[in-house]
């Protein structure tokens, strides 16, 4: 190789080439570095410029779900204090069920009336019957454990649930959806179910247990699906719904406890204002390197 190059340009020193073949290039050490070094490097090629307002609006769905969980905890507290009796709870259950169905029916998320009847109605009735049959078991499940432990475990489970919850989509999908939920969101759903069982086990009667279980599971399993459908149907509706939900929750929490109100309010402000601002600020420090050493990405979907 080198002979040929040398004969091409007898009087000039052969130029250094960025190649690996042909042995050591005459006149250059192996650690020779020229200006073409790192020429293929691209920095921050895929960085998305984010808009403050858009990030704030997107974060509304997080605070919406936070409010939903806060409302569930409120209902639990009132039930445990016997402020709400079991009939009232059952009324809430039925109204939630009906309104949820109506929302699913009127937001076009692949749910037609026939699917609703065939798929949901049958399943939900099995589900309700099962819960009713199992209620006595739930009631006595944690009798040997002290209440303090139960509150502590429930609180940590709820934190885990909120931490791992899939805020962008719904873990329980509409029938026919292709995507399988991620492991973390499944853990999140399970944590919420266990928390509901623990709370239910502290209640005085079977009907209480049944009513509270039905309520919690409805909210935890189908709540995200309903809010997701609303969001997909109309973003404006989603915003109105979320803000009214926030107002309602805050006012209820205010009636319950001042300190909790302050905590929830600051949490909402943190999620909706501070975090988006923070995200935008730390974008400056984004440092992404791409170059010829990157693994090539396939331009078609791979099947496994």
């Amino acid at each position: 190789m080198d002979h040929r190059l040398a004969s091409d340009s007898p009087q000039f020193r052969p130029r250094w080439r960025k190649v690996a073949y042909g042995g050591m290039q005459p006149g250059f050490d192996d650690n020779y570095t020229d200006e073409s070094f790192l020429e293929g490097m691209v920095m921050n090629a895929n960085v998305v410029k984010r808009d403050m307002l858009k990030v704030m609006l997107d974060s509304v769905s997080i605070s919406e779900y936070l409010c939903i969980v806060a409302l569930v905890v409120l209902v639990w507290t009132y039930t445990l204090e016997s402020t709400i009796d079991e009939n009232c709870l059952l009324c809430i259950d039925v109204s939630l069920l009906v309104s949820g169905f109506l929302i699913l029916l009127y937001t076009p998320e692949k749910v037609s009336l026939s699917i609703l009847i065939h798929h949901y109605f049958l399943n939900i009735s099995f589900f309700i019957i099962g819960l009713y049959v199992l209620a006595p078991i739930y009631q006595t499940l944690t009798r040997s454990i002290s209440s303090d432990s139960i509150w502590a475990v429930t609180a940590s489970l709820l934190v885990l649930h909120l931490f791992l919850h899939d805020y962008s989509e719904s873990t329980v999908n509409a029938p026919g959806a292709l995507k399988n939920p991620a492991l973390t969101s499944c853990i999140s759903v399970n944590a919420s179910v266990v928390a509901s069982v623990f709370i239910a086990s502290r209640l005085p009667s079977r009907l209480h247990v049944f009513a509270i279980m039905l309520f919690s599971l409805q909210v935890f399993l189908f709540g995200p699906l309903v809010t997701y459908c609303i969001k997909k149907y109309s973003f404006r509706l989603h915003l109105c719904f979320s803000i009214s939900l926030m107002v309602v929750t805050l006012s209820f929490v205010y009636m319950l406890h001042r300190l909790l109100f302050v905590l929830l309010l600051s949490l909402l402000v943190f999620v909706n204002v501070v975090c988006p601002y923070w995200l935008i600020r730390i974008q400056e420090y984004k440092f992404e390197i791409n170059g010829p050493w990157d693994e090539a990405k396939l331009c078609f979907a791979i099947t496994d």
């Binding site: 690996a20 570095t33 070094f37």
Partner: peptide, 21 residues
């Protein structure tokens, strides 16, 4: 290879003089 050198220099913060191909 030279690509590998670029990659190693970026990853390890070593000066390019110290890396041979």
């Amino acid at each position: 290879s030279h690509t590998s050198k670029e990659n190693t220099v970026l990853r390890s913060g070593l000066s390019a003089e110290k890396v041979f191909v």
